[in-house]
């Protein structure tokens, strides 16, 4: 049961994680680094509340052994701007367009939206729905979330 040290970049900073075999990235983020924006809704890859970016691609951190991210770049919601005056346009749009209710899905929704808008700055409504389909929201009925991503895309394109 020897623990290993795993080196990776977390929100732009090099970090060392101490991992027992098969410990998930989610557990390391939440328990070791206390980055609790990454949620733990199911540990089944079924809800998307634990979505973070690894090398700019969204993944379910509950399913990924942290040893797999050795040498890679991990970004969580804490890696976005962290003040009310300097919100990322996606955060601002989620807040202003009521895309948050209980808030539990919000970190995952925001992170996967960030990946989408970086890869596809002007997504169609269909492309937004397709990107978000693995992230569950039980409160909003999704419509405000889709509209927030559309709004964020407009703002990020200077609109």
């Amino acid at each position: 049961m020897a623990s290993k040290i795993v080196n990776f970049t977390l929100n732009g900073r090099p970090v060392e994680a101490m991992s027992k075999p098969l410990t998930t990235l989610q557990a390391i983020l939440r328990e070791q680094f206390k980055y609790t924006a990454t949620k733990s809704g199911c540990k089944q890859g079924g809800c998307g509340s634990c979505t973070v970016l690894v090398n700019d691609e969204p993944i379910m951190s509950c399913l990924l052994p942290v040893e797999n991210v050795e040498g890679q770049e991990v970004v969580t919601l804490e890696g976005l701007l962290q003040s009310e005056d300097g919100l990322h346009p996606i955060q601002a749009a989620f807040f202003e367009r009521f895309a948050v209710q209980c808030g539990y899905c919000s970190p995952g929704m925001i992170m996967i939206s960030k990946a989408l808008l970086e890869q596809n700055p002007q997504p169609s409504r269909e492309e937004i729905v397709d990107a978000l389909t693995g992230n569950f929201c039980r409160c909003t009925g999704y419509e405000p979330i889709i509209q927030a991503v559309e709004e964020a895309a407009r703002r990020m394109n200077g609109g």
Partner: peptide, 9 residues
């Protein structure tokens, strides 16, 4: 199959 994150894994 799955959603985007699942297909990434």
């Amino acid at each position: 199959i799955g959603g985007w994150s699942i297909r990434n894994m």
